[in-house]
Design a protein around this nucleic acid. Structure first.
Lengths: 285, 285
DNA sequence: ACCGCGGTCAATAATTTATGCTTCGGCCAT
DNA sequence: ATGGCCGAAGCATAAATTATTGACCGCGGT
């Protein structure tokens, strides 16, 4: 039971001095943090031992125990209330625009988690695993998307899944011409409107390769021809902020895929650990 | 800041004994309630004074103060997890590992915000603005860091700040040989241990260029020669998770810089809007 | 009036926390 | 190499906080 509730409930049965202690604590619970038993006694003009006996009668191990419990309760209730007094957390954060960005990112990452069915993620992981072992993985993205394509290809290679990465549509077109059933193509395109990517994806699909698209959560041409369509949520009034939010959510989605890949297979995980160690060693000597 | 986040963010800079204290507290925060500083010291086989000094270094008034703060935090988080059925966390429970990743990212981004002095960020923004107008900006990063170097260079170009980007140390070395006072070099290096980058940075510094390093929040060679050292906090037991967390925090730091650059100057902001529109048009027809 | 009883306090014991001092080991410049 | 410097860690101890003891007081019941 909360110490404050306990104090209140016993208040009626208390002696005069005890009641003054009880009232003080109930009124100034948040000040307790900075009071020793002696200071509390001074504040009330009573002896320190009375304070200690008070706490023991209530069933606490001693004064520090009561103090600790009250602290916990305050913390809990502040959290529940929303922390009215300490609310200016965003205000304290230097630039409020950064705080807004942070909030948008958080919202968007959560939304992104929710709009991608676990089955889609599992299917993607399975496809990548299969293609990594028996086929090929192709990855493409243009412009800013290229950075994420590149990053994901790098991560896959750590897991022992080699990916053909390209930031050039025409080169990728020729790479893809050798596609076989079982291969996987991962296309990153925020707006899903790039004609060249659309063509590549459709060609790949016709060759019975599996096409996974990663786009904004809109209706766009690219999604329509995907075998698996992963989507990213991201919104803000200002375009440049929205762009940051998109990238953050995209990264989070990819990190989720990566984690699933790691967990799904012990061998792969072992390979990852080995690779990381090898990289670490290359930097040391 | 939560005491646990604070401890985690400082962990890298700690000595061996301090790190053991930090780990113990992070692992057994809920046990702290019943531990005196002496008991904690015994549990770790170290001296009681080391425990007290540890707490003081972290900015607490002493051991009881730390204990109290940790108690508050535990209480708050217990309330958050168990009491209120706040949807986001359970919703993310497709894989608990992803939930952990999310938590680590959040902590690390918060810690990263706190360990970079606003003055450092402002100074970086000012340096980039000046060099963008009258001098040159050089950006380099190797391996995974290259992706972020590349991404940031791209963002700067949207703001009308052209940056010389390179993922090749030897090429960058020759680029840098033309460095003049007022130029800025931005070096991304998670561990700050790459000898080639160190040499480039030092050469640049000698030519009176301004060196901005972005590294993990550790003591590393690169930081020591920086005019401005930006740092990133990121921790997890599993190396591959830690790597994801690092990248996420790094991105957040860079996003913060970008936002400041946008806000600081209306002309630049206008240019950004214009560039975004131009890009949008290129995709439409 | 006298005893018992609960309550309070001052004095003090016990525990806990904080600090001063010393030693040790790594690091840098000579 | 060598001497000096600095930080880390421990030991001893001071300071503080907390807990206990025993004496005193007022009050109600016998």
């Amino acid at each position: 039971m909360s110490p404050l509730v306990k104090i209140r409930s016993e208040r009626d049965r208390m002696s005069a001095v005890e009641r003054r202690i009880a009232d003080f604590i109930l009124e100034n619970a948040q000040l307790l943090r900075d009071y020793s038993s002696q200071q509390l006694a001074n504040a009330l003009g009573i002896s320190q031992s009375s304070v200690v006996k008070f706490t023991q009668k209530l069933g606490f191990r001693g004064y520090p125990d009561l103090k600790f419990s009250v602290g916990e309760t305050i913390a809990r209730s502040e959290n529940g209330d929303g922390g009215a007094p300490s609310a200016p957390i965003p205000a304290s954060e230097g630039s409020s625009a950064v705080a807004t960005l942070w909030r948008r990112k958080t919202e968007a990452e959560e939304a992104t988690r929710l709009i991608n069915a676990p089955e889609s993620l599992d299917a993607t992981v399975a496809a990548l695993a299969r293609a990594g072992a028996n086929g090929r993985v192709f990855i493409i993205g243009l412009g800013e998307d290229d950075l994420y394509a590149r990053g994901f290809a790098l991560k896959l290679s750590l897991l022992g899944i080699l990916a053909v990465h390209s930031f050039d549509a025409s080169r990728m077109a020729s790479n893809v011409s050798a596609a076989k059933p079982g291969d996987v193509l991962l296309v990153f395109s925020e707006h899903g409107r790039h004609p060249a990517l659309y063509k590549i994806a459709r060609f790949f699909h016709e060759r019975r390769g599996q096409v996974v698209t990663v786009t904004r959560h809109t209706l766009n041409p690219l999604r329509t021809i995907a075998d698996i369509a992963l989507v990213v949520s991201a919104h803000d009034e200002q375009p440049h902020v929205q762009s940051l939010v998109y990238q953050s959510s995209l990264q989070h989605l990819l990190d989720g895929l990566f984690m699933r890949l790691c967990e799904e297979d012990d061998d792969r995980h072992a390979q990852l650990v080995a690779n990381l160690e090898r990289i670490g060693q290359m930097l040391e000597p």
